[in-house]
């Protein structure tokens, strides 16, 4: 919470990257508190590990400091407050946290919890749903990750081996 606010104020981008890593780690702790151990595991590995490394890598390729923005913060603040008020109004109808009679608890999930024991026979229900009941979903997600990876490769690694000459002339033009 405090770390997120710190990200708003700090202008050194290095500190921003570090704060976002700390924020991810703290949110992983929160996920453990909410019984989502798989999610916490992923968040700790991805958010605090890989994404910090990537942001630092970007900083090394670009610049370290942020220029203070000239635009006034009034309009964004207004937008944010209105959106936040609308969302808080939305939560008024939501069930209390942890209630076991909420719609989310009563429809699909008891079914999954009961059936996965004799249909799948895998102790970790999360894995069972992820790989078996929602196998199409996960196939799609894997494809998305694959596509994003290809996109990054196309954007910044430039497939140097094939077009060595083109790229070199381009780079000379760009940096001069």
């Amino acid at each position: 919470m405090i770390t997120a606010l710190a990200v708003v104020r700090v202008t050194s981008l290095f500190a921003t990257a570090m704060f976002s890593g700390v924020f991810s780690l703290l949110s992983a702790v929160l996920f453990v508190g909410l019984d989502a151990v798989d999610v916490a595991f992923t968040e700790a590995a991805v958010g605090a590990g890989i994404s910090t490394v990537l942001v630092l890598g970007t900083l090394a390729l670009t610049s370290r400091h942020e220029k203070p923005s000239k635009a006034s913060p009034v309009v964004p603040l207004f937008v944010v407050l209105v959106t936040g008020a609308a969302l808080v109004y939305g939560t008024m109808d939501m069930p209390n946290i942890g209630s076991d009679t909420s719609p989310a608890q009563t429809h699909v999930s008891p079914d999954y919890l009961e059936r996965s024991v004799h249909e799948i026979g895998v102790p970790n229900v999360v894995t069972a749903i992820l790989a078996s009941y929602r196998g199409y979903d996960t196939l799609g997600e894997t494809a998305v990750v694959f596509t994003a990876g290809i996109g990054v490769l196309l954007l910044i690694s430039g497939l140097r081996r094939r077009r060595e000459d083109d790229n070199e002339s381009e780079e000379e033009g760009g940096t001069s």
């Binding site: 989502a36 798989d38 999610v39 991805v46 990537l54 999360v126 992820l130 996960t138 990750v145 994003a148």
Partner: peptide
């Protein structure tokens, strides 16, 4: 477990 599954994949897609 259902939200966990959805968010698990969402995190990895998010980093990508």
């Amino acid at each position: 477990p259902l939200p966990h599954v959805l968010i698990l994949t969402a995190i990895v897609v998010g980093i990508a």
